[in-house]
Computed example of a mutant assay.
Amino acid sequence: MSKRVKITVLKRLLMDDIIHQYAGKEIEPCARCKEGDVFITDGRKVPDGFCVWAWADIFKDILMVRQNAECGSADKKCQVVSCSDGFRPVIFLVEPFEE
């Protein structure tokens, strides 16, 4: 079992067509994180500065990586996941972190 997990922000998306149709206002990309931001966690606590909404969305993937379960990446160790914000989702890479 990996004691800690590294979460890297890969990409912030903006779903312009959906925003235009359903939001009724301008929306900016997620301001909670930027591409390249890195968060380290033991899987039990939300890292400082990490979005709690995203944490709830990807928590099961954090646990899978922490338990060394087979994941969907080429090396079977990492998981690429996203938060569930339909207007401005954020894509994360979750991987084991060894010091």
Rank of each mutant, 00 (worst) to 15 (best):
D42T: 07
I62T: 06
K60C: 05
V46T: 06
A74C: 04
C51T: 00
M64T: 03
C78I: 03
D85H: 11
G72V: 08
C51D: 00
D61E: 14
E70P: 08
A56T: 05
G43F: 05
A69Q: 14
A69L: 14
F59N: 07
S84A: 09
V81E: 15
R88Q: 09
D42L: 06
D57M: 03
P47Y: 04
F87E: 13
F87T: 08
Q67P: 00
S82H: 12
K45D: 08
G49Q: 05
W55Y: 11
K77W: 04
G43L: 05
C71L: 12
P89M: 07
K60D: 11
P47I: 07
Q67W: 13
D42S: 11
V65W: 08
V38T: 12
C71H: 01
Q79L: 14
C83K: 10
V80R: 09
E70K: 15
I58P: 04
V80W: 02
P89T: 01
D61C: 10
C71V: 04
V65P: 05
Q67I: 00
W55Q: 03
M64Q: 12
V38I: 15
K45T: 14
N68V: 03
Q67V: 01
T41Y: 10
C71Y: 01
F59D: 05
I40L: 13
T41W: 10
C71M: 14
K60F: 08
I40W: 05
V38E: 13
R88G: 02
A54T: 02
D61I: 01
P89H: 12
D75A: 11
A69W: 14
A69M: 15
V80H: 03
K77H: 10
S73A: 10
W55L: 03
C83E: 13
R44K: 13
F59R: 12
S73R: 07
G49R: 04
V65E: 05
V52D: 10
D61V: 00
D85S: 12
C78W: 03
T41P: 08
K45Y: 04
D75W: 06
K77Q: 14
D75M: 11
S82C: 14
A54W: 08
V80Y: 11
P89F: 09
G86D: 06
C78H: 12
C71F: 00
G43V: 04
R88Y: 01
P47S: 09
W53P: 00
C71P: 01
V65S: 06
F50G: 04
G43W: 04
V81N: 14
A56D: 13
A56G: 11
C71E: 07
